[in-house]
Each structure stands twice: as structure tokens, then as C-alpha cells.
Amino acid sequence: MKSLFRLLPLLRHDQFQSGTALADSLGVTRPTVAAWVTQMRELGVDIHVVKGRGYRLAEPISLLDRERIFAGLSASLRSVLHVLDIQTDLDSTNRWVMEQKPAPGQWSICAAEYQYQGRGRRGRVWRSPPASNLMVSIALRADLPSRALYAASLVAGVATVRALRSQLSVPVALKWPNDLYIEDAKLGGILCELQGNPQDHPVLAIGLGLNVSCKPDGLDQPAVALADVVPGSLDRNTLLIAIVNQLYDVFVQVQTDRGVNELLEEWGQYDCIRNRTVRLLRAQRTETVVARGVDDAGQLVVESADGERFSVNGGEVSVRW
């Protein structure tokens, strides 16, 4: 697969390139180039193929640039950085960053142009065409309160909303516990995983999948990409830098209980289901309730038809409207 991705940086959107020229640049045969183009198209990259002229991208593609991303990180984040890596293709960025085993206080960051075993909550598969959306994970080992660990997806959601609103002025909102929305369409999701003893500097991995240029296939709900609502071109490097810097800031903030309280309060400002009637899916039962925000632990507070209020956690339920 990695050999296949050698082709992508050579393709242009403003002119055709012959199979012979591409083959010479890559040190392969013309049939190999043709096969790679076919595979890229099957993965979702829009490539025009014209006999006698060659190959051309339908739209420009901006690849992730490690040096540019590193330069854009805050000085504080660079000082604790264990590793920053950009992969052409990877099964899971969350798996990769957890395997780097950052020391206490350190951060590992990985982004991929294509992720072929990306996961959401409850093991759902998340895939998108190469070099089109944002798939990034961080792993950190920090002395965080238990509340911060268990509310990590909410905290990461606040960071992502801050970054997107400041960079693009788009009304991104949050749906408990880990989804990013614009109006009633899903923009992305966050997957948090904990490795180790919560009382002894566990590794916390935070994975973000964000629809930038297009919507992934196979979703069972309305979806939106930033390109649908933001005019002009979008720079994934700029977005990644802004999001990761905000993630660093919020996870410094939640090292105290006061910081956790502040972040949960801010999360409430972006809550897109508060006071809405939603369906609560628990085990084999579906219950209609009204969402009433989150409690001090980051659990969803709901109100039943008879007026009873109770809290549920992300491991128990799925919320739909």
C-alpha cells in the first residue's frame, strides 16, 4: 500500500502527466502506474484518465506536511513532544500513538493520509478517501484527575470546536458524548481509549476523524463536510495545527478539578441536544427522553416522560433524535 501512495504527490490538477513520465519518476513500469491509478480511484481519489494525455487530479490535493505542522505547534507542546509522525496509510492512528509509549508528561501525535481500519464508538468503521479528510490521534501521559480521564471525549470536543470556530467561523456544535455537528449533520467524531491503570499515569489516546473535503461512505445518519459550508479551499495542515494546539491547552487546563468544571461548563455552550427530545438506546431497549445537559462527571442527564432525571454514561447508550 505504501508503494501505491508514492504516486499521489506527483499527480497535479492543473495539467495532465503521461504514464511514461510518472513511471520514470517513480522507477516503475507504465502498467504499474496504470494499476496504481486504478487503485487510487477505487479508494475515492478523483483522477481524470484520458488516453493519449495521461492522468490529472480533478481537484487539487494538499498533503500533510510534517515540518510545517511541527513549526506550527506551540512552544509548550513542542517541549513535551515525544514523536510527531505523518503516515501515508495506516490501520489506526490511535493504535499507532499508543504503541509509542510516551513517558509521563510526554505527547505523541500521528496523522494519516489514509486509514483503513479507523474506528468509532462501538467498533464502527470510519473510512474516507486518501488526502481528503483529517485523521489524527494524540497519546499523552499526564497526571490527570479521574474526572478528566472519563470526560476526555467531551474535553477534546471543546478543543476541536474552539479551533474550528476560530479558524473558519463555522457554527460547530457537540453531541454527547463524542460527535461534532453542524446543524443536524455529523461533521466528525472523537474516540478516546485508556491504556493502563487510571491511578498510575495511564496512556490516554484521543483520535479525531473530521470531514474536511468530503463525507465518508457507509454512515447511517446525515453527514456534512467543512467544504460543504466553507467557501474556498481548506488547508488540512492549518486545521490540524489549530486543533492539536487547542488539545494541548485544554488538557493542561483539566489537570485541576476547577479546570474540569470550566471545560464541562463550556461544553454546555456547544451542546446541540440540550432540551431536545432524543432516543436513548440501551441494550435492547429504546426510550424517548429529553436531554438536560451533562453532570459533574460528564455523564448525560436525561429526563423521562414522568419527569424523573437520571444520568447515563457513554458505555451504556447511544443517543439519536
Rank of each mutant, 00 (worst) to 15 (best):
A159G: 13
A159Y: 06
A159I: 12
T160A: 10
T160G: 01
T160Y: 03
T160P: 00
V161H: 04
R162D: 05
R162F: 10
R162P: 00
R162K: 13
A163I: 07
A163V: 03
A163D: 10
A163S: 06
A163N: 06
L164E: 05
L164N: 08
R165F: 06
R165C: 05
R165G: 13
S166M: 07
S166A: 15
S166N: 12
S166K: 15
Q167M: 14
Q167R: 15
L168G: 06
S169Y: 04
S169C: 05
S169M: 09
V170R: 07
V170N: 05
V170W: 05
P171G: 04
P171K: 02
P171R: 02
V172H: 04
V172P: 08
V172Q: 01
V172L: 08
V172A: 10
V172M: 13
A173M: 14
A173Y: 00
A173R: 15
K175P: 03
W176M: 01
P177Y: 02
P177S: 14
N178M: 12
N178G: 10
N178E: 10
N178W: 01
N178D: 07
D179W: 03
D179I: 05
D179A: 08
D179P: 04
D179T: 09
D179G: 09
L180V: 11
L180K: 09
Y181G: 01
Y181V: 11
Y181S: 01
I182S: 04
I182D: 01
E183N: 13
E183L: 05
D184R: 14
D184P: 00
A185W: 00
K186I: 00
K186F: 10
L187H: 13
L187G: 09
L187E: 11
L187S: 03
L187Q: 06
L187F: 10
L187A: 10
G188H: 07
I190N: 09
I190M: 05
I190R: 08
L191D: 03
L191N: 07
L191K: 02
C192G: 04
C192Y: 04
C192Q: 07
E193W: 05
E193A: 11
E193I: 02
L194H: 04
G196I: 03
P198W: 11
Q199C: 06
D200L: 13
D200H: 11
D200I: 02
H201A: 13
H201P: 00
P202K: 07
P202Y: 00
V203C: 14
V203E: 11
V203D: 06
L204P: 09
L204G: 03
A205D: 07
A205H: 00
A205F: 06
A205I: 01
A205K: 01
I206D: 06
I206A: 10
G207F: 08
G207S: 08
L208V: 14
L208T: 13
G209Q: 03
N211T: 10
N211P: 12
V212F: 10
V212S: 09
S213T: 05
S213N: 15
S213K: 13
C214R: 07
C214G: 13
C214S: 15
K215W: 05
K215T: 15
K215V: 15
P216S: 11
P216H: 04
D217Q: 12
G218W: 06
G218P: 06
